[in-house]
């Protein structure tokens, strides 16, 4: 287990379950990672891997009756967030950690004016009057390139991209230290995507904000992230800096991801990873990827893999691809 003293955010062995009346869904199964100030971590993985759950756990906004954080620690600037009281946590939310959500169409309150939605957080955390907060809110809007005169409009009067920008304004209104961005551009079209990403980056740089960017788009990761962690079935299977992982991917799943990217130069068939992610209520024994892994062995079905250092800050819980390549070379 690594011990990164400089870490601003450090998640240790996080386990999260969803309990419904019939079954237990293991959403997050012992996740450990850390993040330094001002850096961006990309959390990559297929839909349903547990990325959003990890982010929501940090903020502790998981829906409480079904979801339960079973164990783990989330160290943020010297405090374990999981041990804070509700009041203390509330003071952190929005002020020191904030989140940008996936679907802009439903993320805003339809019955409140846009400026008010930004202002109420500001008024709360900065302790200033509503009036002043509204001024600041309008400034925020301008920062995300929405004209001032639209401040008193309602969300339904904006397009999808503009709505997302409002969401970003809300998230950054109080200058948080950590921004959790959950697939912020997935619901938008490609041209707007680029704009929004650029905006996020700019604002982030201005305030030295750390960011966790959740996405399934490897291209976006390459553009904006410093570090990356690959999530599969609620576990991190490989992590490191973007160069380390992208250029020297070691885990069979990561390799599979890269291999499945369409290559515009060739005209061969696409190479997806066979099979589907396992049902989180019935996870397989041993390595969770073994049913789909081309390199699986007998021990894979029984032994639980742990993260092992590969080089520098590059960790992976399985290096079968290297061994296989070595074997090939041997032969």
């Amino acid at each position: 287990m690594e011990n990164n003293e400089k870490a601003f955010l450090s998640v240790k062995n996080l386990v999260v379950e969803y309990t419904s009346s019939k079954q237990v869904i293991h959403a997050v199964n012992g996740v450990t990672f850390s993040l330094e100030r001002g850096k961006t971590l990309g959390l990559v993985g297929e839909t349903g891997a547990g990325k959003t759950t990890i982010a929501k756990s940090i903020l502790r906004i998981l829906p409480d009756p079904p979801a339960k954080i079973r164990s783990g620690e989330i160290w943020f600037d010297g405090q374990d967030l999981l041990k804070l009281s509700d009041d203390e946590m509330r003071r952190i939310r929005g002020a020191r950690i904030s989140m940008v959500f996936q679907d802009p169409m439903t993320a805003l309150n339809p019955t409140m004016r846009v400026a008010d939605q930004i202002a109420d957080g500001i008024a709360l955390h900065r302790g200033i009057s509503k009036h002043e907060a509204r001024h600041k809110a309008v400034d925020m809007l301008e920062m995300v390139e929405i004209p001032r005169f639209r401040a008193r409009d309602y969300p339904h009067q904006f397009s999808g991209g503009m709505k997302q920008r409002v969401v970003i304004a809300i998230a950054l209104a109080c200058n948080p230290d950590l921004l959790l961005a959950d697939e912020p551009t997935t619901a938008l079209d490609v041209t707007i995507q680029a704009q929004v990403l650029a905006l996020i980056n700019e604002l982030k740089k201005k305030n030295n904000t750390s960011m966790i960017l959740i996405t399934h788009d490897l291209g976006v990761v390459a553009e904006t992230c410093d570090e990356v962690a690959v999530v599969y079935a609620g576990e991190i299977v490989e992590k490191g800096s973007v160069e380390e992982v992208f250029d020297h991917a070691v885990h069979p799943y990561t390799r599979g991801l890269f291999d499945s990217l369409p290559d515009m130069s060739s005209t061969g068939r696409l190479q997806p990873i066979t099979g589907m992610m396992p049902d989180p209520s019935k996870l397989p024994e041993g390595c969770k990827f073994h049913p789909r892994c081309p390199y699986a062995t007998e021990s894979c079905k029984k032994d639980i893999k742990k993260l092992v250092k590969v080089s520098g800050t590059h960790y992976s819980c399985c290096s079968a691809t290297i061994n296989a390549a070595a074997k090939v070379r041997e032969v």
């Binding site: 906004i61 929005g94 002020a95 959500f101 339809p110 109420d120 957080g121 709360l124």
Partner: peptide, 11 residues
């Protein structure tokens, strides 16, 4: 979602 957003704001 908008209630989750509100919660994420710490309201």
């Amino acid at each position: 979602d908008y209630v989750t957003t509100a919660r994420a704001k710490g309201l």
